[in-house]
Design a protein around this nucleic acid. Sequence first.
DNA 1: GCCACTATACCGAACGATCGGTATGGTTGC
DNA 2: GCAACCATACCGATCGTTCGGTATAGTGGC
Lengths: 193, 193
Amino acid sequence: MAATKKIEDEELMRRLALVFQSHGYEGASLATISQATGLKKPSLYHRFPRGKEQMAEEVLRHAGEWIDRNLLDPLRAPASPRQRAELFATRIGSLYHRGKDSCLLNLLSVTKSEDNPFAGMIHETFRRLSRSLSQVARDAGADPKDARLRAEEVLIAIQGALVLSRGIGSTAPFRRMQKKIPDLLVASRREDR
Amino acid sequence: MAATKKIEDEELMRRLALVFQSHGYEGASLATISQATGLKKPSLYHRFPRGKEQMAEEVLRHAGEWIDRNLLDPLRAPASPRQRAELFATRIGSLYHRGKDSCLLNLLSVTKSEDNPFAGMIHETFRRLSRSLSQVARDAGADPKDARLRAEEVLIAIQGALVLSRGIGSTAPFRRMQKKIPDLLVASRREDR
DNA sequence: GCCACTATACCGAACGATCGGTATGGTTGC
DNA sequence: GCAACCATACCGATCGTTCGGTATAGTGGC
């Protein structure tokens, strides 16, 4: 150990995430990041030797861990499928500040470079979400294929509601979608397809 | 009355749209745009005196007109609500190249500046889409409030499917969502809310 | 038909500003 | 003393933008 950190890792990650998810990867300049974190550029390079790309990577990793702990673990808790789906819905609300924030997975999937450096991590995070969600649907009686489709529907609803809410400057669509998550995942359906 | 254009307005708009929707606003550098259009940077300023921001504005306006002509007008055509919804679904598919492209409304709602210069146009486009979609739901028998919610659901499904498809590198979610659009908009529902 | 003029379209070169990234050296806490 | 941490100052490259100038094409006067 040595000189005290000016900002703790946890808080640093939170602020970095906020910058990336409000301006995107290219839009988040080191000047902006420096101002948001209180660390000058050399200090940022002390914390992230590989620079801006590493910052985004670790923010993505940190978000992935938050998702594992606060979204996916509860989906496997010993409770009824509906209870688990409802807890998931409330947690989704706090993750995105009830619709005010954007999703890192969406914003970081757009970069200037032809092949996105974060594509792998983004893909994998969506996959983990999908698997855990579909397991809940299976526990509620859905067959494997229907369960996978329900998980996909939930992910689509979340991402779409975030995009629309930002697009129209109102969190109402997100809040309406949030209430529908449990039914999308575990409610039985009429056979009218 | 002048020298011949190296690239016609229509084709220019199409290429600009492609650049913005694959790299985002900040990610679309003038160097990239120049390469994609075949016009050097000064020539771009001849076409768009106010620079990059004007390019994005006009691309957005051009896309809005395409939507009005190819998506919204058919929604008011003299056909059954379901037929109109189905035509809408196929047109959505061609707009986004069956899920391969991203949505300009999503990508251009992220910029480095604090207040997005395109927010107004994006908001307005979503609003026009919502109004026309909800009218179809009303024609199918939905009451005004339910119709508005159905329109919102369709917009959420489209945006969410595009985000997810890009995130996992597969157009399967988009294609599945596309098939569901007519039912979301005009199918009668079980009363289990 | 021919020349002078104007308008449009385009581009090489360079602008100041900002980009991401670093070399150097001081300060802090063990 | 020493390692961790951070700031001043600076780097080359690229950003969006602009200047000066050329090529093309239609117009009006004669």
